[in-house]
């Protein structure tokens, strides 16, 4: 099982803060996961456009080619604006 969480605009567009997803080996890396989620429909495609999206695995900022494994927590969010 993967836990997927969303923050800020990404969460608002999806109208959803988190979801659980069965892990499958076909989800080889973060980009594959992003593409699979984006294919769920228009709002998913809009929320998960890669050019304005960051991704973290187990609360570490990660690159799109990072492999994922069962049990990971994956977060999608826009560029950060704290401070």
């Amino acid at each position: 099982m993967l836990t997927i969480v969303f923050f800020a605009q990404t969460r608002e567009i999806l109208d959803q803060g988190s979801l659980s997803l069965d892990f499958s080996p076909a989800l080889s890396n973060l980009e594959t996961l992003r593409q699979q989620l984006a294919a769920r429909g228009d709002k998913w495609d809009l929320a998960l456009q890669r050019d304005k999206l960051l991704v973290a695995v187990n609360q570490e900022m990660s690159r799109w080619d990072t492999p994922i494994k069962d049990g990971d927590e994956v977060a999608f969010f826009p560029p950060v604006t704290g401070g």
Binding site: A8, Q9, A56, M61, A75, P78, P79, T81, G83
Partner: peptide, 25 residues
């Protein structure tokens, strides 16, 4: 503070005359 601004997962949303909007990085 420089690193906090680009590394820490925090997001600001402002309420203005044209409604709520997320601040751009």
């Amino acid at each position: 503070i420089d690193y906090l601004k680009i590394k820490a997962p925090l997001w600001k949303k402002e309420q203005t005359e044209s409604g709520y909007q997320w601040v751009d990085a």
